[in-house]
Design a protein around this nucleic acid. Sequence first.
DNA 1: CGGCAGTTTGATTAATTTCAAGCAAGGTGG
DNA 2: CCACCTTGCTTGAAATTAATCAAACTGCCG
Lengths: 227, 227
Amino acid sequence: MSSLLPMGEREKSLLRTMPFISSLIGEASDQMVESASGVHCEARDIIFRQDEPSDFFYCVLSGYVRLYRLNRDGREADIRLCGPEDTFAECVLYAEGGYRYNAQATDTTLLCRFETRSVRRLAERYGAIDKAMVGVISGHFLESMDCIANDRLQTAPQRVANYLLNACEGSVETAQLRLPFPKSLLAGKLGLAPEALSRAFSTLRGSGVTVHGRLIEISDPEALRNV
Amino acid sequence: MSSLLPMGEREKSLLRTMPFISSLIGEASDQMVESASGVHCEARDIIFRQDEPSDFFYCVLSGYVRLYRLNRDGREADIRLCGPEDTFAECVLYAEGGYRYNAQATDTTLLCRFETRSVRRLAERYGAIDKAMVGVISGHFLESMDCIANDRLQTAPQRVANYLLNACEGSVETAQLRLPFPKSLLAGKLGLAPEALSRAFSTLRGSGVTVHGRLIEISDPEALRNV
DNA sequence: CGGCAGTTTGATTAATTTCAAGCAAGGTGG
DNA sequence: CCACCTTGCTTGAAATTAATCAAACTGCCG
């Protein structure tokens, strides 16, 4: 079960490094930090469920959180995977109604929790908070439109190639990367069944991708771009 | 070709009824309206292309605009379909870089165009503009997450059923609705080929859906919910 | 009466899910 | 120290779903 815990100095200073807080200065930043609570989760803890009253939004300090929706037969679809520095459920700040999806920790995870009401009140005083929120939400919105486009025009190997290229951004020659989470989570993030991800990786072997557990080597980024 | 046109009184008062303007009051609202230009488009006019510098964002006064992305082979995927009262590309206000997708009028369409730089400057003066933007963008972000979830867990007939139910919101008994755009656009919006939409409609005949051109009759909303 | 855009229908193909089974690494308890 | 189990991943085969290709149909307009 997830447990509330007071924010220590360590957590506070970690929180201050998160993009959406670090874009604030002075009192606005201090008050946001002071208004936050810590939440500690273990793997598979549910943080909130769809339709529950949306009184809080969150920022991930460490670990990963999966946002997903259920259909009537109990099948799950991942909507987003949030890692360190990501915030989630911030839309509830200005959109009424309960949460629109479920949130689950995938691992030991440390979160900051903000009370919607308090932050709204703070935003009355410090306009910079609204600006920070627009920035954060815009970024998420663009990401989610990318996701829709990718789902609709890419095959499984293309999605994986795309993910790998973004993940090792910049490397021109051979690159190596280590997945920060199990492959099954990556599959969900890309909208694939784990089996489909596995098969996509074997297809990509032909384009210079070698997989050893979570360690992935990319010998020819150019080939990957042409998948 | 789309053409810039001065905002007449008719256009200005129409603009004032758009949700994201009407949430503003007094000067903030006036200045936003004064800063807008009108754009008139004919069917198939391109409003902007992916990677072009994103100097403007838009609000639809009448008509429909299709946001879509191309892949390398020239296949298109729709990301969003914007109708009257919708704004699009507002994310560019706080996210740098060019447009992330193409925008095309699907019909004779009247738009308001806002210059990003001016609106940013206005927002310095009137914090309410930031609040309005958070509201608008949050709404779009939630919609796009719905879209991801629906794409990932619903079959074609389910997506169509879902669309119909949302479109005739509230009606308990039999309902009728008229599509405001051709079926091919609806197909794109739902992430389907036109043929798949057509087949989905014939499947739904078994759940009390009758189609006459753009006119759709739903004899049993309950059955539709169970598709 | 053509002609055309939009839509439907049929046949085929492609991609992915689903189900089932096997494999490998790591951890546990005897 | 080893047999056993668990978890995560891979592989194969079958089934589903929708895309694609091709052709026919419909209503509307000149």
